[in-house]
Design a protein around this nucleic acid. Structure first.
Lengths: 222, 222
DNA sequence: TCATTCAGGTGTACTTTTTACACTTCTAAC
DNA sequence: GTTAGAAGTGTAAAAAGTACACCTGAATGA
């Protein structure tokens, strides 16, 4: 079976860079390629857009098929279309990025998901296609948006401590922050409220737990 | 002649929102559609990606073919792929925006360019497809980037007065700015230098002319 | 040629925001 | 019960941003 058109068409795919924080390090989810080209290389999850499928729908579907992850928050990153980026044919890739809470995802063993694995962003293998470029851009965007959006909250779940939230900021920015100034900053956002509980068990004083005051309107609050 | 593939493919186009400032108002370049669908409606210039053509190359080519404009600075805006946005078929559109200096472009009468025309952004006709959405997003991006990039300089040519530069900022932001604070701000950017001349002829005192100190590195200087 | 109009050009005081910085409290572990 | 480790808290200095008014000089036209 084949599909014919009056003019040639490039292929269209979506790729997704899923970030999380593991062991206090920014990490990204990759899958090992089983077929050519770049067989055996690690790559971003993604795949071809189906007929009449919205781009974001495609990204979510591919993510679920290849890694078992569902229902994550996605943001469009950039569209890559340089000829030669796929050696077989001209492929236009709409790249997305996703942020998931720390340590919250168990990679389901799906048919395609066996070879999905988390990697530290600073310790990546050589990637297939131009996926390293996509990741570089995604990471740059992540860092930039930290300052004018509330994207950091996507990395944590409700009932977090301010110390945990601060560490998200520190990991993405790659530098230590002053504790008192950070707490002042968080309070000025007006997005979090006291959950009424304390986190006990670890070393040190028990930490007050917080939650998002309005989990829905999580955006551009600054 | 037809082109056949093992799997169905959406069509891919680029559209370009070219902005300039005319008569102290933000304006955008549109073309009148001659064929269906949306025959007679105004639309953004753009068209189909050719085999092994880079997306930005496609945007520049379509812009030249349809409006005669060449060599403008482009930035990728967003990729639109909602099914149904083109009633004929599934079309993925990579949208770009371009900024050109005030009053600097003569629309060449090319084969396709006869029906290209500037419109005030606040006084647009009903547009084809989802082009109003694209323009809304482009305008939003324009306003946002004004504050953290040096995009405003794309609207002016060397040998500008600070009054002219200020008016670019005012037009995009839609509000008046304090003259002394604005001049302080421009000096703090460190991007402009005295051109050594004065603009004479109009009413009022002759204004000192400035030029970009480093025309190349015009980005994210803040 | 003198008066008027109009845009250019300049500095300072006040407010707000950002930054730097150190000690006490409480819990768990030894 | 001593130690180690994270939580929690306020103030002062610096920097950035904002508000504000008058004089200059060129062109116009009475």
């Amino acid at each position: 079976m084949s599909f014919c058109y009056a003019y040639p068409r490039p292929a269209v795919t979506t790729d997704i860079a899923v970030f999380t924080i593991r062991n206090q390090r920014l990490s990204v989810l990759l899958i090992e390629r089983g077929g050519d080209p770049f067989c055996g290389y690690w790559a971003l999850p993604g795949g071809f857009v189906e007929p009449d499928e919205a781009l974001e729908t495609c990204a979510l579907r591919e993510l679920e098929e290849e890694t078992g992850i569902t229902g994550v928050w996605l943001e469009q990153l950039y569209t890559f279309g340089t000829p030669g980026r796929d050696p077989r044919q001209h492929v236009i890739t709409v790249a997305y990025f996703a942020l998931v809470p720390m340590e919250s995802l168990v990679l389901k063993a799906g048919s395609d998901a066996n070879d999905a694995q988390w990697f530290y962003i600073d310790d990546l293998p050589k990637l297939a296609f131009d996926h390293q470029d996509i990741l570089d851009l995604a990471r740059h965007r992540l860092r930039a948006k930290l300052d004018y959006s509330t994207l950091a909250f996507r990395f944590i779940r409700d009932n977090f401590t301010l110390g945990e939230l601060q560490s998200v900021y520190e990991i993405i920015r790659g530098e230590a922050l002053d504790k008192r100034n950070f707490r002042k900053f968080v309070k000025s956002l007006g997005l979090v409220e006291d959950a009424g509980y304390f986190k006990q068990g670890g070393p040190g004083k028990a930490a007050r737990l917080y939650r998002l005051a309005c989990p829905d309107q999580l955006y551009y609050t600054r």
